[in-house]
Every structure is written in C-alpha cells, then in structure tokens.
C-alpha cells in the first residue's frame, strides 16, 4: 500500500533506549536486565509505541523510566493488576510488567497468583535480588533462612518462596529463570516470553551489590547452569517442577515450563471476540440496546 511516510527501518535496541540514565547503584544487576529487554524488544520487531511497560515500586520498578516504550510506574505491588487492565483494554499492545521480588512475591503476591491462573498475555520480569534494596536492606520473600539483614539482624527464620514452582502449579504458561550476568541468554528468554501467548514469568537473578552480600554476582556465576544444556523438555510438567526445586551448588536457569495449549484471557473473553481493542471501540448504548433492557424491567 502506498504511503506518504518514509519507510522506517526495523527498530533496533537503540530505539528502546530511554532518555533518562538509570539511577541504580553502579554495578547493579538491573542494568543487565534493562539491556536484555532492549535487545528482546528490538528482536520482536514492533515499534516502541506498541509496548507498555508497567511496574510497581522498588529499585527495579524504576525501569519503565529508562526504556523507550509507553510506561506506567504504579503502586507498590500492583503492577500485574494494572498491566492486566492495560492488556484487556488494548490487547494489540505488547505488555511487559517489571518489578522486584518484594513487589511481586511479597506485597503483590495475591495479584501474582491470580494473574497467572488467568493466563493474561503478559511478560513479567522479576528482578529477584533476595533483598529490599530501596528501603536500605531488609529481608525479602526470597531471602534464605538464616540471612542477616537490617530487619533480621540475628538471621531470618522464615523460609523463602519458590516463585518458579509456584508459577508452574498456579497456571503460568511460560516459566523461566535468567541471570542478569548473562544478557544474551536473558534477552532470548525475554524475546521468547513476549512471543509466547499467555502469562510468561522470568525470574531474574539480579544481584544487589549494596545490600546483599550472600547472593552476589560471584555466587551466581559459580552456581547457575543452563537447562538447555541438560536436554530438559519444557513441555514436561513434572520435570519442570523437579528442576524448579533445585537449589544449592547448581541452580538451573533457562526455560523451565512452556504450555501452549491454554487460551490467554483475552482470547477466552467473549467480549474481545470481534471489534478490535476495547479502547478504540465506540462508547455508549444504542437506543435499541436500551429499549431491550427496559423491556426486561417492565
């Protein structure tokens, strides 16, 4: 089709680079996550205005300000609820939610569970640093037993959540783990998560270099392995669960679970069947619709 506009080249990672420089601590794991996301978005081939990045509150939740997409920097723990609203209002958009372990698995835990069971077509990236960083170092839902923080000076006595196992049993249809020290691998997981139709969780080891002296870059470099190299079949639910429970000398990353059989919420919802995104439809009630309603009340 002829167009007056010059033909634009496909977007590159540079097109997704925001104007604002991140204010994360130098060396923060979140830099690698941001870089991977820029690469993944470029690979997807959509224009920046077709993406919405939604976050909660925390260091990692500042990410929407640093990437060149539409962004929403919402309340602590609420990114998934807001992102669901955005996706259902305009299911043509690629919607990404980002945040930290406290934001997503702590205060936002309820939305985490229910967004997964609804299989909302989102990519959810959790920058998991096993600590509350922006509040200067308190225990988080993923901190290990015994971890000493400002709020657990004698060591935490609470067990951590296992977000991957939780995601697999709760209904997430794409469940992966990445490491911000391996940007290329992470970008590929993100790209495939966006390509996937359904809820995609990527839990990312994104070390806090200031407050977490346990789960450091060095720790993860020694322990992380890649599932791709083990011959793991991500459609095998039981094997996915088994791998998700692994922790210790070897901690697997990569794609744990992938289920393409379930419809997404927007596919399952009859109201979205035809007529395009809700956000662009005509508003209001026709006289005939109104008359039909009144007839039922007479």
């Amino acid at each position: 089709m002829a167009s007056d506009k010059p033909i634009k080249a496909a977007p590159t990672a540079k097109d997704f680079k925001g104007d604002v420089a991140p204010d994360w601590c130098p060396g923060c794991g979140d830099f690698g996550v941001l870089r991977a996301l820029e690469l993944a978005c470029a690979k997807l081939g959509r224009e920046p205005h077709e993406f919405v990045t939604v976050s909660g509150i925390g260091c990692s939740s500042n990410l929407p300000g640093y990437i060149n997409t539409y962004g929403m920097h919402t309340l602590h723990g609420r990114a998934l609820a807001v992102a669901t609203g955005v996706k259902l209002a305009n299911h043509d958009l690629t919607v990404i939610a980002t945040g930290g372990d406290g934001d997503g698995y702590g205060i936002g835990g309820n939305h985490f569970v229910h967004t997964m069971r609804r299989n909302v077509d989102l990519l959810y990236i959790v920058m998991n640093n096993q600590i509350y960083g922006l509040t200067t170092g308190q225990v988080s839902p993923t901190s290990r037993i015994g971890m000493k923080t400002k709020s657990t000076p004698f060591g935490s006595v609470e067990g951590p959540v296992n977000p991957l196992a939780m995601a697999i049993v709760t209904g997430a249809s794409y469940v992966a783990r990445g490491f911000s020290g391996d940007t290329k691998h992470l970008a590929e997981l993100m790209y495939r998560g966006m390509e996937h139709k359904g809820f995609a969780l990527i839990d990312v080891f994104s070390p806090c270099i200031t407050y977490n002296k346990d789960n450091t870059f060095a720790f993860f470099k020694q322990t992380v392995t890649k599932l791709e190299e083990t011959g793991h079949d991500p459609t095998d639910w039981k094997a996915a669960i088994e791998h998700s429970m692994a922790w210790g000398d070897e901690i697997p990353t990569g794609l744990f679970y992938h289920d393409t059989s379930r419809p997404t919420l927007d596919e399952a919802e009859p109201v979205l069947g035809e007529g395009g995104p809700l956000a662009h439809r005509n508003l209001g009630v026709t006289k005939e619709q109104g008359a039909a309603i009144i007839r039922k009340m007479m």
Binding site: V54, A81, G85, N90, L278, A279
Partner: peptide, 15 residues
C-alpha cells in the same frame, strides 16, 4: 486493590 488497579490500567489505555 486488584479491582481498582485493573480499572486504572484499563482507563489509562483508553477505556
């Protein structure tokens, strides 16, 4: 909490 945040997301997107 989820209710109103979902509403806000949809409202922002144009509903």
């Amino acid at each position: 909490i989820g209710v109103i945040n979902m509403v806000i997301g949809a409202a922002h997107a144009g509903c």
